[in-house]
């Protein structure tokens, strides 16, 4: 049974299991440097959680570790019931994961349409091209342009849009609002709300707390390669000041 079938079977038989992602005692290393020091968190199906923290706290590395894009990892990463720590990097997305990197990763040698069609379908039930172009009309207008000729905001939308086509149900989004104009940040917030309505599970690494706060179900605060605090949406109003000091904003 390949990983995709395992995933399907798991989802069919294990309907009471609500957990999409469980990370336990995750350590990650780049060469000699030890970046993550025992990260623990879980994400339920259909939930939107954020990883907050200062630069260098290990938030992006956590996402990269889940995708097996760092040097060495120990601990446990269970995605939808499958332990993925020893999976090859290209097998992990086939469990139904879409990854949007911080640097967006738009390909210069491909036009917008090709960029959009690039990631292989990992599961059925992804959004159709029409739906995606409906959600991001700008991309349709610029579909013949070279990918990197787009504005920063358009590139970000493209980076998001292309993983929606693949049928991924768990989205790992790294700093999607970074350096973007408020109107585009607003648009991205609307998109995230729509994705949540579609039942997607989302892990959001965010610097812009004002963007993340109204969207998320839970917040995990990271520092020095560990999760140091978990704050639910309900606790948020009372903890806001505390959080601001922790994040240094």
């Amino acid at each position: 049974m390949n990983t995709a079938e395992a995933y399907e079977a798991n989802e069919a038989t294990d309907t009471h299991s609500l957990e999409m992602l469980r990370v336990q005692d995750l350590h990650a290393f780049y060469g000699e440097s030890h970046i993550l020091h025992g990260v623990n968190f879980n994400v339920k199906r259909g939930e939107l959680v954020t990883l907050l923290g200062r630069n260098g706290a290990g938030r992006s590395t956590t996402l990269k570790s889940i995708m097996n894009m760092v040097g060495r990892r120990t601990g446990s990463i269970v995605i939808n019931g499958n332990e993925t720590l020893h999976m090859k990097p290209h097998h992990i997305p086939r469990l139904g994961i879409g990854y949007c990197p911080e640097e967006r990763g738009i390909f210069a040698s491909l036009d917008v349409h090709e960029n959009l069609l690039l990631p292989p379908t990992v599961r059925s039930g992804g959004m159709s091209l029409d739906e995606i172009y409906g959600m991001f009309p700008n991309l349709y207008e610029r579909r013949k342009s070279q990918g990197t000729r787009l504005s920063g905001g358009e590139q970000q939308m493209l980076a998001m849009a292309r993983i929606l086509r693949t049928g991924a149900r768990l989205l790992l989004l790294d700093e999607i609002t970074e350096g973007l104009a408020p109107v585009i940040v607003q648009k991205l917030a609307e998109v995230l709300v729509q994705l949540k309505e579609r039942g997607m599970t989302i892990v959001l690494v965010e610097q812009n707390f004002r963007f993340a706060a109204p969207l998320a179900d839970r917040h995990f605060v990271m520092d020095h390669g560990q999760i140091v605090e978990e704050i639910s949406a309900a606790q948020l109003p009372s903890r806001r000041e505390h959080l601001n000091t922790m994040l240094g904003v």
Partner: peptide
């Protein structure tokens, strides 16, 4: 072709291609 697009994209950023599920 699609295979060619994989190749061009892989030339630019093979790690991200792996993260999309392409057997680089």
């Amino acid at each position: 072709t699609r295979l060619g697009a994989y190749l061009r994209a892989g030339t630019e950023n093979s790690q991200l291609m792996q993260a999309f599920g392409v057997n680089v």
